[in-house]
Simulated assay, not measured.
Amino acid sequence: MKSDLKLYRSLPRRNSTARSAVTIGNFDGVHLGHQAILHRVNEVARQQGLSSCVMTFTPHPRAFFAQRGQRPELIPTQISGLRDKVEALHHCGIEQVYLARFNQAMADMSAATFIEEILVQGLNTGWLLVGEDFRYGHKRAGDIEMLRAAGKRHGFSVETLHDVADADSRRISSSEVRTALAVGQLDRARALLGKPFHLSGHVIHGQKLGRDIGYPTLNVRVPEHCAARSGVYVVRVHGLTGQALPGIASLGVRPTVVDQGRLLLEVHLLDQRLDAYGKLARIEFLEFVRDEEKFPDLITMIAAIDNDAQRARDYFASNGL
Rank of each mutant, 00 (worst) to 15 (best):
G33D: 06
Q35R: 15
P76Y: 09
L74I: 00
Q35N: 01
V97Y: 11
A111C: 06
G93A: 14
L82R: 14
M109D: 04
S80M: 15
I75F: 08
F102P: 01
S52D: 00
Q35G: 05
G81C: 05
H39Q: 11
I37R: 02
L82C: 11
E87F: 13
K85Y: 11
F57D: 02
R71I: 00
A100H: 11
D108V: 08
S52N: 02
H39F: 09
F65R: 04
R46E: 12
S52E: 06
F57C: 07
N42G: 15
P76S: 12
L50P: 00
V30S: 15
L99M: 13
Y98R: 06
R71Q: 14
S110Q: 08
A66W: 01
V44K: 05
D108M: 09
L50C: 04
P61M: 09
Q47G: 04
C92P: 01
T56S: 10
L32N: 11
N103Y: 05
S80C: 08
V44A: 04
A45M: 07
V86R: 08
F57V: 05
A45T: 01
V86Y: 03
L74F: 00
Q104E: 13
G33Q: 04
V41M: 07
T113H: 02
H39S: 14
R62E: 14
H39W: 06
I94A: 11
R40E: 11
S51R: 13
L82E: 13
F102W: 03
P59C: 09
A100N: 02
P59W: 11
N103P: 00
A88Y: 12
G69K: 04
Q35W: 09
M109K: 13
G33T: 09
L50G: 03
Q70Y: 03
Q48D: 08
Q48G: 07
A36K: 10
T56E: 07
P59Y: 08
T58V: 14
S52Y: 08
N42S: 08
P61I: 07
N42K: 12
F64Y: 13
A63C: 07
E73M: 06
E73K: 12
K85W: 08
T77R: 15
E95V: 11
R68N: 06
R71K: 13
H90E: 14
V41G: 03
A105I: 10
H91M: 13
T58C: 09
L74A: 08
Q96R: 13
V41R: 01
V30D: 10
L50V: 01
Q78F: 10
F57P: 00
A66F: 06
D108A: 14
I75S: 03
Q104N: 03
P59S: 12
C53W: 01
G33W: 04
P59T: 07
A66C: 03
P72W: 09
F65H: 03
Q104C: 01
T113S: 15
